[in-house]
Amino acid sequence: MANMTETESQNLPPAVIELLGVKKRFGRQLVLRGVDLTVREGRTLVIVGASGQGKSVIIKHMLGLIRPDRGTVKVFGRDLGKLGRGEMNEVRRDFGVLFQNAALFDSMTVYDNVALPLRERTGQSESAIRANVMEKLAMMQMEKAIDKFPAQLSGGMRKRVGLARAVVLNPKIVFFDEPTTGLDVNKSNEIYRLFYRSQQQLGYTAVIVSHDVPKIFKLADEVALLDEGIIQGCMPPDEFQLSEQPLIKAFVVETMGHLYSSDEEENGFYAQAES
């Protein structure tokens, strides 16, 4: 990013989220030591790194759930640290979030979970809400489970309902916190396909925190490595995998080894997603 020419930077989509020198301490532990990161409109940014490095903490800063000790978090050019509760809610109206365990409301049915943002934030009639909810549930292939409660769903189904809820208001940015944690290979592939398809249809910007390397690289426009509390590099996945930066190289070797995916596998994945 630093050695980008002026013409190249002019061609880039505008930044929707910017983290500038973000530092965060929990008790005696300094988790973020000065994170600089930019998320651009319509792109998919994947944040990778070892467990406990603070990847989810970065997402929580972007969502305004945590305030930085130092530094600035800007969303659509607005400094989240300077926003009041009402203004923060205005910014959050453009967010959708898929939490690690989907965070579905366990006392509500699948339908009510997905309808909740519409009921609370829009003045839509119940018939309009129903049409919207059913459309999003159909997109996630969950339209037959509307009367079930979260406890009656498998992990993968819960994630799909969580994704339907995240996109029900057609948000501009969707955050994914470890979207495939606890899922087997088939189910995590399913979640990635649904993500890919919904992003193609709705055109949202995506920020994904994931351990799922190298699979997640297929979906990324940019990959950022968080290590030792700072972003060690943020670049397209092809560059990331070939980077000579020592920490990135060590991460790639450690997590991917000989598992570089073949072109055939990659083409097959996208063909399935588009079908």
């Binding site: 929580k60 969502l63 305004g64 759930l65 509760r85 809610n89 205005e90 959050r92 109206r93 967010f95 979030v97 939490f99 690690q100 365990n101 965070a103 579905l104 409301f105 366990d106 909740l116 943002p117 609370e120 934030r121 955050f175």
Partner: peptide
């Protein structure tokens, strides 16, 4: 339990107070 399972965070992120 809602706090533990991130349901309160989910409400905040949906701009629901």
């Amino acid at each position: 339990i809602m706090r533990n399972s991130e349901q309160i965070d989910a409400l905040e992120c949906m701009a629901v107070d």
